[in-house]
Design a protein around this nucleic acid. Structure first.
Lengths: 148, 148
DNA sequence: TATTGTTATACTCTATAACTATA
DNA sequence: TATAGTTATAGAGTATAACAATA
């Protein structure tokens, strides 16, 4: 008899994507709850967290980092911009493109988002081996790669 | 000087949740594209795939498996039911609860969804070690657990 | 001609609150 | 009283097509 994780023959990788979506939903909800004071939606958190390192990025770059399309980002950026968290500035090097600049207040919230994310990550991986985390990242990258 | 992925002290697990969301977006889109003939949304695919093993489940159970709330599922189930893919049947053991039964056609589509998922999983993990996949699952479970 | 990003548009996703039926 | 699930409602997420500006 085989256990649930070794169902069939050799290393059949069943049950990666469904748990992936489940975990994404769960972490998204927790994240929004932890940041309830800032009243941020998952997409807003995601966008801010991807700008939290202080680097200026274009809309397209943030779209790629969040895994969405520029068109999806527009309304998110509108809201963040409306709150004064960031502003769009024409890229002098390519005037079709906008560079996203965080305001000091936006930077504060972005750091908060990043900290909340790291706190969850640390809690989750505290009792796991480094090799497991490394495997996690490898599989994630592979899933991304085949999904391009 | 430290690289971006080793910012602070020891094995700080930075960069799990952001890539998680990115990979989720990417796989969701690929999945919908692969199943374009069936015209299914990500949530419909997710629900069906979680019923594809032929087991009868309640709305609440599928909600837990997909990582959403029952209220979110209602419209998804309405659409699937409207297409004749499943029907809600009162649970005789608890008449507040509905059991979800796939029709033969629903079962066909659910298997298709499951197969598409497995195909992506196999492509992604083909060149990875079993230990990496095992680590992936462990981290996923841990993230879910701390996010309850 | 091709690309960046927005606008217009159309659905889907998501959840809270209120409700019904059952436990 | 508590729980399962729906309905009503409101807003956020998602993408395609059309467009303007720039490359």
């Amino acid at each position: 008899m085989l256990s649930e994780n070794e169902q069939s023959s050799v290393g059949k990788p069943t049950g990666l994507i469904l748990p992936l979506q489940r975990a994404t939903h769960a972490t998204l909800r927790l994240l929004a709850a932890r940041l309830a004071d800032e009243n941020l939606t998952p997409s807003e958190i995601n966008a801010l967290a991807n700008l939290a390192d202080g680097r200026v990025r274009s809309v397209g770059e943030v779209a790629a980092l969040t895994g969405t399309k520029p068109t999806t980002l527009t309304s998110v950026l509108d809201r963040l911009s409306g709150r004064g968290y960031l502003r769009r500035e024409l890229d002098p090097a390519d005037r079709r493109s906008f560079l996203l600049h965080l305001s000091p207040e936006g930077d504060r919230v972005a750091r908060l988002a990043r900290a909340a994310i790291e706190s969850i990550e640390e809690a989750a991986t505290a009792s796991l081996a480094q090799a497991d985390v490394a495997g996690f990242i490898k599989v994630l990258r592979a899933l991304e790669e085949v999904s391009q």
